[in-house]
């Protein structure tokens, strides 16, 4: 089942063509790695795929809904899309649990229920014990776990991760990748931007971007790499 689908998507910033006609489908349970040199349009692809940015032309469909027809993109993001960035993901003045609760509270879910949900998801990502700590009291790996938990609350099935391991050491990075892979196997669609060729091995598919175009795409799933 296709969770997100891009058709001939372009995105231009004035003269700069960040995306130059990209088509891509990501299904539930699929982890797609996006690679490419800096400035090749990886972040732009993620933003357009998640409705943080609108394409200049082409169509983006999330869970069957054409984004061009969606009036309240914010609501769609709350219910369908989760983001994880390289760092500075969490709001410093909120505890881990409160950070995870936030999208649900923004969606109108009552505080008590949002907290119960948050604690459940935190437990799923192995961060239950840090629920009441503030981001600055957490290690880099713990922070990313919390960010992933937040991206998954409310049964969101599209997870967009922009270099989530970029600020982590190798061992911690591997743990985070393992976590993403697990979430994926449980039904999430994951679009992962990464610089690390090693992580390509965890993906079901890798696409290479250059100058806003997909130059190579292939199923590279190598059981040995895991």
């Amino acid at each position: 089942m296709t969770v997100v689908s891009l058709r001939d998507v372009t995105r231009e910033h004035g003269e700069v063509r960040a995306l130059g006609g990209v088509s891509l489908d990501v299904s539930a349970g699929e982890l797609v790695a996006v690679m490419g040199p800096s400035g090749s349009g990886k972040s732009t692809l993620l933003n357009v795929a998640g409705g943080l940015d609108r394409p200049t032309s082409g169509t983006v469909t999330i869970e069957g809904e054409d984004l061009a027809a969606v009036k309240d993109l914010a609501a769609l993001r709350r219910t369908s899309v989760g983001y994880v960035f390289q760092d500075l993901n969490l709001i410093p003045s909120l505890t881990a649990a409160e950070n995870v609760m936030l999208p649900r509270e923004l969606d109108g879910v009552r505080t008590g229920r949002a907290r119960d949900e948050a604690l459940a998801v935190l437990a799923e990502v192995g961060a239950a014990e840090v629920a009441d700590r503030f981001p600055e009291e957490l290690s880099g790996g713990q922070r990313q776990r919390v960010a992933i938990a937040r991206a998954l609350t409310g049964e969101r099935r599209l997870l967009l991760a922009d270099e989530p391991t970029g600020a982590l050491d190798t061992a911690t990075g591997d743990e985070i990748l393992q976590l993403l892979r697990t979430r994926c196997d449980e039904g999430a669609a994951v679009l992962l931007v990464t610089h690390e060729p090693r992580y390509a091995g965890w993906a079901d598919r890798v696409i290479y971007l250059r100058d806003g175009r997909i130059v190579e795409s292939g199923a590279v799933r190598m059981e040995s790499a895991r």
Binding site: A74, A75, R77, T79, N89, I91, P92, L106
Partner: peptide
């Protein structure tokens, strides 16, 4: 502003 951007990415509307 940075904080507001993070909150926006979590699905906060302009009104929120």
């Amino acid at each position: 502003r940075r904080e507001l951007a993070v909150i926006a990415a979590q699905g906060a509307s302009a009104r929120q």
